[in-house]
Write a protein that binds this DNA or RNA. Sequence first.
DNA 1: TATTTCCTGACTATTTTACTTGGTTATTAT
DNA 2: ATAATAACCAAGTAAAATAGTCAGGAAATA
Lengths: 158, 158
Amino acid sequence: MRLSTKGRYAVTAMLDLAIHHGEGAVTLADISEAQGISLSYLEQLFARLRKNGLVEGIRGPGGGYQLSRPPTEISVAHVIDAIGEGVDVTLCGGKTDCQEGERCLTHELWQQLGGRIHEFLEGITLDSFLKRKNVNAVVRRQQNDLAVETPRLRKTVA
Amino acid sequence: MRLSTKGRYAVTAMLDLAIHHGEGAVTLADISEAQGISLSYLEQLFARLRKNGLVEGIRGPGGGYQLSRPPTEISVAHVIDAIGEGVDVTLCGGKTDCQEGERCLTHELWQQLGGRIHEFLEGITLDSFLKRKNVNAVVRRQQNDLAVETPRLRKTVA
DNA sequence: TATTTCCTGACTATTTTACTTGGTTATTAT
DNA sequence: ATAATAACCAAGTAAAATAGTCAGGAAATA
Ligand code: FES
Ligand code: FES
């Protein structure tokens, strides 16, 4: 009962964007360094996020990505869905046909579970999540790490 | 956001066992046929289920498997846990160390989600699930399928 | 003793995930 | 202009997980 980790990366990256919302664009290179995700992998994820209207890409120097809506209006479910998988917990993919064209014994169970997971994720916005105490501590730690590592700071770290 | 499907097979097989609870042992060959799961794969799954005390194996002719507790006392969560993965939704596996030894941004999110999933599955017993209307319809369909296919019926199908 | 069925371990194919490579375009700064 | 920056794009690859096979044993029954 593992959950696929692709969505995890997307959510992490989106949170990084949310942290710097209103401060101009953030480059994928920055996110890659701060969150420890491969740059090219991020590019693939952001292609999806962009096509689903969650982020805007800005090319050229000084460019990067930024949220296309305020972080109060983007839920974790939005991000997961944009990545392309939805929350598909059934084997049949909602078609009710995985046992020789007919509904299998457990279809209803997984369908319900999928619904629950989605509801849960819908209830959490990027903004509300970042305001949690534990999460905020991580944000501050990452900013300190960056300040130590790089002589030229990210413009957003005061 | 797919869920691993290994647990799905285990739950399906356990439901088959629950259907025939109190009617003697059911062979893996029967389950394999009724639910469309490979026999050798079932054997691997049942090794786990047995080690975790959910089922009892009986060897020799007339043998098979049966639940070691009544289906009212086995939850779907029990089955999933026995299969060995637990409901591990975090990347770090609960160690809070997936970003260079420290807690990553999203740890709390996945940990909470995992908790919700587990609670949901704890609340569903094999017995209660089989009593649902939709599910019961599938059970009856499978019994009819069997009756048509095999001249010598499963002893449990009257 | 022959058959049935569980039981075990190792091995293989397939799929998914995570990542790389090698580019191209658009934008800005010099 | 031209050089630097950074998004964009299309493949291809490496590693891991999943799903399944194979070949044989060991206990129980008839
Ligand atoms: S999971 Fe939908 S029919 Fe089996
Ligand atoms: S998921 Fe636990 S620290 Fe990242």
